[in-house]
Structures are given as structure tokens and as C-alpha cells.
Amino acid sequence: MVNRAYNFNAGPAALPLEVLRQAQEELVDYQGIGMSIMEISHRSKQYEQVNEETQQLVKELLQLPAGYRVIFLQGGASTQFAMIPMNLLKPDQAAAYVLTGSWSDKAYKEAKLFGEAVVAAQSSKEGLLNMPSVNGIELPANAAYLHITSNETIAGTQFKAFPATGDVPLIGDMSSDILSRPFDASQFAMIYAGAQKNLGPSGVTLVILKEELVDRFRSDVPTMLSYSTHLSNDSLYNTPPVYSVYMMNLVLKWIQKSGGLAKMAERNKEKTDLIYQVIDQSSGFYQGLTEKEDRSLMNITFKLADPEMEKQFISEAEANGFVGLKGHRSVGHLRASTYNAVPYESCQALAQFMQQFQSKHS
């Protein structure tokens, strides 16, 4: 029996054990070719099959209609913060951003390096962390696009619905909740996500583009930072992150085999309910950091009524096999990331530990 930690890391994060075992089996000899997938050419038929199949799996799981392309890039979601305005923001336009936390703020600041960027809506700066109403978003008349972050990993907040933007392209950073629930992907002109939370290990970034966007791309963009380069070369312009794409392939197959996005959403709600219920029923011993209606199903942020006891909580949690419960340094306190691959049993164990800790220290 493998001794597995209760992994609540925010990213890189837990991977399905089933996927890790298959990768382990295939590590030295991939499908009988006498080489690891890490050793083969990205021009080989074996890798081209992985590349094409992984693209198709993304389309199937998101039920993407015709007219969308899937590409795999490097540089993480943070590189997309610059690539988006570089490719889409023209001198007579403004990039619109909804500011909901650290990651959306970073994307907005990056856009300002390339032209005009405006705040279309933002979370309240006082009280509990929250998401702004999608009905309160104000787009400038010359908007090149509207950018949102669907789930704020650090804050622990999540959009439950997405704004209607008409002819203005909607772009979503879904790095921390991609493939965690069903949604209408056709609302978006572009979706991007770093892999290391719900898709696989770090090293590859998933980008989904509506083909209509191609006509809006600027032509004065460096080759490697141009979406057109990667679209026209099917993600194979340069050597791709072969192993990361292979691992994403296995994770997507695991999601599909497990029942798809509807089943993921059901499991994620069951898992997080266990922990949120302990917080809500603790008579203030534990306190959530977010408004209840905006709570994330991926990142649970909370604190103890006695801040000094949080260090003790972390210490005892680690001694009991729990990993990754310290909050982000910019927010502090506590955080449990409950991505798709985090087992129900891990969340159940954490809920029980939290109850025992309260009983011991009340």
C-alpha cells in the first residue's frame, strides 16, 4: 500500500494516483517503442498522436462547438498575461479587466505595459473576500476584450456565472478551476490555464481560442509570443513540453472515465462541503475568509479566531500527514486546495482533524 500524504497544495497540486501509476509503468518504455516519451522526437508519429488526442479530449470534455482551436504553450499562465494584450490590444482600444484578487491584478498590470487598460469591475476592498456581480461590469466603448479570472486561488473566491459581453471577446483565466464543473465554454473567445492544478504537472499551458480571434491578432508580435505562430504550427513550432502534454492526456482520460465535468462538480461539492460545514458549525473557532455565495470549490480559505493558534494548527496538521494548508504569504491564515484529483477521503480526514483540533484547543 502506497503511503500518500493528504495533499492540499495549491499548485503544483495532487494528481490522480491512477494516472501516476500509469505514467510510472510507461516511463521507461512508452507503448513498446523502447524509449520513454521524454526521449522521442516531437515530430514522431507517437507524439503527434498524443498532441492531437489531447486537443480532442479538451474539446470533448468542454463540449466545444465548431470554430475553436486548442494549443499547448509554455511559460505558464503568467506569460499569457503579456501575450493577450500583445496580440489583441490595438492603439485605439482599451483592455478591460475585472479585478478579483492577486492573479487578475497581475494580468491587469501586465496589460498596462502595452496600452490602455481599464477596470471594468472589482471586488470590494472591505469586509470578506468576494466576487463582483457580473451584471455590474462596465465595458468601455472601445474595449478590445474583457478579461476575468474565474477562480482566485489565493482569495478562495469563484465566479458562479460569467458575464455576457456581446461582440466584445470574453477571455478567462481558468488556471485553478478548469474542468472542475460544466459551463458554457462558447461564451468565451479565449480560455487559458496553467496545468499544475487540475490538468497535470507544471510545464504546459492550455490555451483555447475561438478562430474568429485570428482576424483580430496584431502582426507586430515576436514569433514565439504570437498566437498565430502556434496555431499555424499546431503547437509544434518549437519543441513542446512533451512529458507535460502526455501527463495532461492521462489526466483528461481520467476525468472522462470518471464521469466528465458533471461528475467532477458533484464530487468537488461533496468534498468541500465537508470542510465548509466544519467551519460554519464551529461557533467561530474557524472563520471563512470569503462571502458564502462566492466560496470556491477549489480553494478553501479560512482562519482561526485566535491567530496565534494557526501555527499550532499547521504543526499538528503536518504531524498528521496533511500538506499545503498554510495560506498564501500575501493573505496568510489557512488554505485547503481541493482540486479534482484530491480524494474525498483526504477532505474527510481534514474535516475530522479540524473537529478534533477544535475539541482539543477550545
Results as ranks from 00 to 15, higher is better:
Ile154Val: 14
Tyr68Gln: 11
Ala161Asn: 10
Leu73Val: 04
Arg69Leu: 09
Val168Trp: 09
Lys292Ser: 06
Phe72Pro: 02
Thr165Leu: 07
Pro201His: 13
Ile255Phe: 05
Tyr243Phe: 04
Phe357Asn: 04
Leu89Asn: 02
Leu236Gln: 08
Asp215His: 14
Leu139Asp: 01
Ser359Tyr: 05
Ala351Lys: 12
Arg267Met: 14
Gly101Tyr: 15
Val251Tyr: 04
Gly32Glu: 03
Ala349Trp: 10
Phe81Tyr: 14
Phe72Asp: 01
Thr239Gly: 00
Phe114Gln: 05
Ser346Lys: 09
Lys45Ala: 12
Leu350Pro: 03
Gln74Ala: 06
Leu146Val: 08
Thr229Glu: 02
Leu88Gly: 01
Phe322Asn: 04
Ser362Asn: 14
Glu310Pro: 13
Thr100Asp: 07
Ala121Pro: 04
Thr272Lys: 13
Phe302Lys: 09
Glu18Ser: 14
Pro343Val: 15
Ala111Pro: 03
Ser124Tyr: 05
Ala195Phe: 15
Met248Arg: 07
Val98Ser: 04
Leu57Phe: 13
Thr223Phe: 08
Asn130Gly: 05
Asp306Pro: 01
Glu126Gln: 12
Val251Ala: 00
Tyr6Glu: 02
Ala341Leu: 08
Leu231His: 08
Lys311Cys: 04
Leu62Thr: 02
Asn9Asp: 09
Leu170Cys: 03
Ala23Lys: 14
Thr301Ser: 01
Tyr246Ala: 03
Ser202Lys: 15
Leu213Ile: 14
Ala107Glu: 13
Phe353Tyr: 07
Val70Leu: 08
Ala117Val: 05
Asp234Met: 08
Ser78His: 12
Thr290Tyr: 04
Ile255Ser: 01
Arg21Cys: 08
Asp167Pro: 00
Ser337Trp: 02
Asn130Cys: 10
Ser346Asn: 10
Gln46Val: 12
Glu116Val: 06
Ile148Gly: 02
Leu236Asn: 09
Phe357Leu: 07
Ile279Tyr: 09
Gly288Ile: 11
Glu212Asn: 11
Asp177Thr: 07
Ala189His: 11
Glu316Asp: 00
Asn130Trp: 11
Gln93Gly: 06
Ala14Leu: 11
Gln355Lys: 13
Ser123Tyr: 07
Lys292His: 07
Tyr108Ile: 03
Lys160Leu: 06
Ser330Ala: 15
Lys109Tyr: 14
Lys360Asp: 08
Phe313Met: 03
Gly259His: 09
Gln56Cys: 06
Gln63Leu: 00
Leu289Val: 05
Leu27Ile: 06
Gly11Phe: 04
Leu334Cys: 07
Ala5Met: 15
Pro65Asn: 00
Arg21Glu: 14
Gln24Thr: 13
Ser150Phe: 08
